[in-house]
Nucleic acid binder design. Sequence first.
DNA 1: CAATCCGCTTAAATAAAGTTAAGTTAAATA
DNA 2: TATTTAACTTAACTTTATTTAAGCGGATTG
Lengths: 235, 235
Amino acid sequence: MTDEKIKVLLCEDDENLGMLLREYLQTKGYDADLQPDGEAGYKAFTKKKYDLCVFDVMMPKKDGFALAADVRAINTEVPIIFLTAKSMKEDILQGFKLGADDYLSKPFSMEELLYRIESILRRVKGKRVKDLVAYQLGGFTFDAQKQLLTFDGVSKKLTTKESELLNLLAANANNILERNFALKTIWVDDNYFNARSMDVYITKLRKLLKEDANVGIINIHGKGYKLITPQVKEE
Amino acid sequence: MTDEKIKVLLCEDDENLGMLLREYLQTKGYDADLQPDGEAGYKAFTKKKYDLCVFDVMMPKKDGFALAADVRAINTEVPIIFLTAKSMKEDILQGFKLGADDYLSKPFSMEELLYRIESILRRVKGKRVKDLVAYQLGGFTFDAQKQLLTFDGVSKKLTTKESELLNLLAANANNILERNFALKTIWVDDNYFNARSMDVYITKLRKLLKEDANVGIINIHGKGYKLITPQVKEE
DNA sequence: CAATCCGCTTAAATAAAGTTAAGTTAAATA
DNA sequence: TATTTAACTTAACTTTATTTAAGCGGATTG
């Protein structure tokens, strides 16, 4: 019954981004450590057995590629994901693409990072990471995997964005889901237009959910949203 | 029971790239040799019976096409894959006339190369590369080797493209198969027309799969496709 | 209670994906 | 070698998904 958490080493010099990613991975059940530069990252790697690394390419003291080389010298197996700047030349990118298990060019959504981490863990370790996700929301059943919302035996196929948003809401059911968090998770950037886009999807979800009066999305002014749903007895 | 390794001749002048590829192919069970230029490549080819060649197009002393021509002079059968720099329309055509079986334009991922190698070996030489290639997809059985999709005792022979696409989808069952990855691995080039072509094949596969309501292909807007199939309990 | 900010909704615009059918090409066969 | 067939691509068009725009209404703050 020892459900060991997967240990992730995150090296990112942008503190905001780093903290955000670390927090997100933690909420997703990972044991994520954050280091602000390559040297600190290397030190951390020597002290703990990580299952996966996420390295920013551009970092002070030691860049992500050099760090990866040092890490490879003591461990040839651990998967490495690089976070690269968007304006990287193809030939340089080629190197990363081949030496890395995967790479993500900025800006990316947190969901995307998670997706890549999970697919690598699946490939490399053969672990089944995502257990089937089906939420019970009052009279609704929401299958995030299949993007299907079912009520009274009738299933409706949700679009990708609808499903991603409902998934986040459901994961925080009866708790506040912060606007900015949702935006960064799903839309990458929390700018004005994406915020408007999210508004539109909140409206859509409300329409979908109004068949059951006990389920709904309420707004917490200036903070975010809360998916209200009857508490399901857990375990 | 002599499970002879498949011999691959790799010619690539970029040492980093070459070593990476050689190592990767070796870990995947191939007997891969690396040569740094066309002349050395030719010399190596005369000394050992290779099952497949991977030639970089731009190499010192003798480029990949010249090397291929020389190789063809003594062996008209051995499959050749070219690694090309981006945007080489005419060169590519020339290469194909010389009997290239496939080509990959940089940058590519090692996965992509591996996939090409395997599908060429499957197609051209009829070798059994991967052992388990029979997927259970709900009520369907899909044998990628034989390109057979069976439902309720009735088998249907799929075309090459149908089978390749379903194979990729099945390998990533219940997870996202990225559009670009599929395009690059199956269609080589991820241009507009090939994307339309892939659409057509998605439609075909959906028709084929609709006999079982629990199986289907859903689109992840802007990212790719996901083959939905009942989870099979793993041990 | 005004001014402002934030959120809601509907509609229009754009972009991505889906469908069907008509071309092409190349392999099979007659 | 001509004819037919199958596989695949290209084209034209339809539908769906997502974003942008615009106006309205409620909430918060001074």
